[in-house]
Nucleic acid binder design. Structure first.
Lengths: 227, 227
DNA sequence: CGGGTTCTTGACTATCTTCAACGAAAGTGG
DNA sequence: CCACTTTCGTTGAAGATAGTCAAGAACCCG
């Protein structure tokens, strides 16, 4: 969940609506992405790499037979759109309205006259690799309850907000996005959340807002040290 | 399975045997790694990044409670040891005797006077990201049989050898390595291999050598288009 | 050849998925 | 603005898949 999350990047050739994208110039060109709109698609040529400034985006990959895997959620600070052979290898869609700063692909690949930006983008790629390794542990070696607890933990550490004595975290993604991220079904995600609620580890304020009642309990459950 | 697989790199500070490492100089310093010996550990400071020249290495990550995830197998051409914050984030061990060419960490991070090498290492990092995304699909959205079939398919495409009319692939790793790579148990890996054998998709010559009898069947099974 | 490890197979169990129903929320059109 | 429709989330019951435990076979090593 930490660091960069995506994979590849470019949008001008996308076969779906890109109307939501328009560069609002500050220092660097900024892109506005509306909720539900695609920034780029698997297979698009990569012209830009993006850093999420506000909002949340979702990176997905489709299997031949329609099964879907959510590769990552991109939160502010994350960089999405790493190319391979000049192509995007995931879809990217806004889960909320989002703004992104864009960088030429060449800024990553040959520096493009800005060594500092070059270094930063490379660091982002390395962070991405490490973050994906964390995700592997989650997908491969955790039970449903542990996965959901881990997911909430990581998200809380990354983007949790303090409200009174508690921390809370907003989940702009649907249950099925979470399921496809964790390798579960929506039903199992729902049941796991219910179980966390029944154990008083969390409270579900509304469907998109979770309050962490017992961070310690949640962390234990996420590690699998539970009864 | 394609591209680079590891994560971080450095070996001189490793708490375990590094005796197997000794620079045999050709153009660039070469490292020899004996079977069963660690090249680096999770948490080690990174001094070098390695490209596998011969042999196979294994990259693993440990969970707090002892559960293990195999992040990748490094075959010739793959680069292992990408750093994050100057540290290795996986263990790396030789599955067979292996030789690796090493590059200064600085060759990745600032070019170190060789722009071409710098570009190559960056490309390797991007390939790594894409390869990990493939791995996600496998971990999250495939059945046991599909995982094992995919594993053999990818390995065959990457390092399979033609023998007569058939291709074969050698598996230098143990069943439990495969299990930890695919998020399964050794028993399930074994049962899946048996099922592939019973369906005449593969033949198991000896435990470490698999002959592909029906690539088409194997591929179908890996995609989940099976009865 | 013998001993230890790894692999395979079987029986049973746990976990997660599937299928189905229901309720809540959100979107649509009058 | 409200009724209608559709989607999304939760819950339950039944079934399937993979895990666990246990035993035997194959392989490796000295």
């Amino acid at each position: 969940m930490r660091g960069v999350y995506v994979t590849n990047s470019n949008e001008f050739t996308t076969p779906t609506p890109v109307a939501a994208i328009c560069g609002a110039t500050r220092n660097l060109p900024e892109t506005r992405l509306k909720q539900g709109v695609n920034l780029f698609h698997q297979g698009d040529r990569v012209h830009w790499i993006y850093q999420v400034k506000t909002g949340v985006v979702r990176l997905t990959r489709l299997l031949e037979n329609g099964r879907r895997q959510v590769i990552a959620f991109g939160y502010p600070g994350d960089i999405v759109g790493f190319p391979l052979d000049g192509q995007h290898h995931t879809d990217c869609e806004g889960l909320s309205n989002a703004t992104l700063q864009r960088y030429r692909r060449s800024a990553l690949e040959d520096g493009d006259g800005d060594p500092q930006m070059h270094r930063d983008l490379l660091q982002a790629a390395l962070r991405e690799i490490s973050a994906m390794q964390d995700h592997f542990m989650m997908l491969g070696r955790k039970s449903a309850l542990e996965k959901v607890a881990s997911f909430i933990c990581v998200l809380t550490d990354r983007v949790g907000q303090s409200v009174g004595n508690y921390k809370q975290v907003s989940l702009p993604m649907s249950r099925s996005d979470i399921a496809d991220f964790l390798g579960l079904t929506t039903e199992t995600v729902s049941r796991s959340l219910t179980q966390l609620r029944k154990r008083k580890a969390i409270a579900i304020d509304n469907i998109y807002t979770i309050v962490i009642l017992r961070p310690d309990v949640l962390r234990e459950l996420s590690l699998g040290d539970h009864d």
